[in-house]
Design a binder for these strands. Structure first.
Lengths: 219, 219
DNA sequence: AGTAACTGACTGACCAGTCAGTTAGTAGGC
DNA sequence: GCCTACTAACTGACTGGTCAGTCAGTTACT
C-alpha cells in the first residue's frame, strides 16, 4: 500500500507540509466544497478556495485545469455517492411501496448527513455549464424512476402507454417534489428525518386526495 | 471637437425617438426580459441589455439604480402577473378538485404563454440576492397553498394538526413538483397543455399508488 | 430658455489563468 | 552519515479581459 508513512494527524500545527498529489487533491476538493457551499459558484473566487485549502491559487491549476473543472469534479464526487446510496437502497428492497420508502430514506439520509453537499448540488448552480450538468443528472434520476415505474407496471400486468410522456412527467414531478422538500428541510433542520420521509410518502404515494380526506400512509 | 460630424446613420432603426420616461422604462424592462432569459443573470452584461433596448447603458441608470434592481423589477412584474392569474382562477372555482385543477390550468397557461418569463423566474437565478427573493416568493406560494388546504380541511371538518409542519411539507412538494414539471415542459413544448395538467392532477391529486394501479383521474 | 431624455468615454475593482522561479523531499554515490 | 543532483510540490507577482457604475456633457421637445 503506498504506505502512508505518517498520518499527518498533527495537522493542527501549521505544518507547512508537502503532500503527495493525491492527498493535496483531496484537501483542495474539500476546501472547494465548503467554499462553494457557503457562497455559491460565481461569488467564490479561486483565491478564496486556495486560501481555505492553505495553498496558492497556482497550485489549484496543477490539479484542475479550470474553475469549472474543479467545481464539476467536486460535484461529481458527491453525486456519485448519492446515486450509489439510493440505487443500493432501492435494489435491496421489495418492489412497490417498500422500494419507494427505501429510496426516500436513502435520499433524505444523504441530505441529512451531508447538508453542505446537498446545498451545493442543487441550490448553487450559477454557471450555465454547471447547470446543464445538473440538469443532465436530474434527467438521469428521472429516467431511473421511469425504469422502476415501468417494471412495476409490468409486474402488475399493466402499463401506461397511452401518453408516451406520461411516466416521464410523473417522474419529473417526483424529482422536483423531493428536491423541493429537501431544500425546505435544509432550512428547517429541526424536523426529524422520519417525518420528512413520511410527508414524502404521503404526498407522492397516497396522493393529495386522500391527504385531504385526512388519511395518512400506514396510519 | 470630435463631435459626431457625420450622423451615425442608424440604418436599422429609423425611430431614434425620444420617449417619455415611462415608455422608455417599458422598453428597457422588455429588453431585460429577453436578454436575461437568453443568457441568465451573470452572463448578461448591462451593455447587452442596453444594446437590445437601443439605448446607452447610462440611460439604464436613469431608470434603475443597479443591475439587481433592474432584474428584480422585471421579475416582480411577471411574478405579479402569475400570482394574479392563479389566485383569480382559484378564487373563482369550487373548493376541492375543481379548485386545484383551476389553479394548475392557470399556472401552466402562464408557462405556455410566457415561456421566456417562466424561464427567467426559476431557472436563471444566478445571483444569491435574487435567489433569496425567489425563495421568498416560493414560500409565499407555499403559504397560500397551506391556507387553501387548511380551509379545505376545515370545510370537511378535519385537520392535520398532529405534525405542525406537515401541511407545509406537502405544499413545498406541490410547488416543487409543479416547478419541475414546468421546466420539463419548457424542453418538451410539443406536449399539449392538457396532458401536462392531467399529469399534474394525476400525480398531486390521486397519488402514486393509484397511478401504479393504472388509474387516472377522471378516467 | 429650461429641462428631461439621452450619450460616449471613462475608471476602478475583480478575478481566472499564467509564469518564472523557489523549496522540500528523495534516491544514489561515497 | 553527508553531500549532490533530480524532481515534484509549491509560490508570489503578474496580466489581460470583463463589467458595473459614473460623469461631463449634448440633444430634442415644450
Amino acid at each position: 500500500m503506498t504506505s502512508i508513512t505518517e498520518k499527518k494527524k498533527a495537522a493542527t500545527a501549521p505544518t507547512r507540509s508537502r503532500m503527495t498529489a493525491a492527498d493535496r487533491r483531496e484537501v483542495i476538493l474539500d476546501a472547494a466544497r465548503t467554499a462553494f457551499a457557503d457562497t455559491g459558484y460565481h461569488e467564490t473566487s479561486l483565491d478564496a478556495v486556495a486560501e481555505r485549502a492553505g495553498v496558492s491559487k497556482a497550485l489549484l491549476y496543477e490539479h484542475f485545469s479550470s474553475k469549472r473543472e474543479l467545481y464539476v469534479a467536486m460535484l461529481e464526487m458527491h453525486v456519485h455517492e448519492l446515486v450509489e446510496r439510493i440505487s443500493g437502497a432501492v435494489a435491496g428492497a421489495e418492489p412497490g411501496e417498500p422500494r419507494m420508502r427505501a429510496g426516500l430514506e436513502a435520499f433524505f439520509g444523504f441530505v441529512e448527513e451531508r447538508r453542505g453537499a446537498w446545498r451545493i448540488m442543487f441550490r448553487n448552480a450559477g454557471d450555465p455549464d454547471v447547470a446543464v450538468r445538473l440538469d443532465r443528472l436530474r434527467d438521469e434520476v428521472a429516467a431511473a424512476i421511469v425504469q422502476l415505474m415501468s417494471e412495476e407496471a409490468e409486474r402488475r400486468g399493466l402499463g401506461f402507454p397511452k401518453l408516451p410522456q406520461f411516466v416521464e412527467m410523473i417522474a419529473q414531478q417526483m424529482v422536483g417534489a423531493m428536491q423541493s422538500l429537501a431544500d425546505w428541510w435544509d432550512l428547517h433542520q429541526k424536523v426529524p428525518k422520519d417525518e420528512v420521509v413520511q410527508a414524502a410518502m404521503d404526498f407522492a404515494w397516497i396522493g393529495q386526495e386522500r391527504i385531504s380526506r385526512g388519511e395518512r400512509w400506514s396510519g
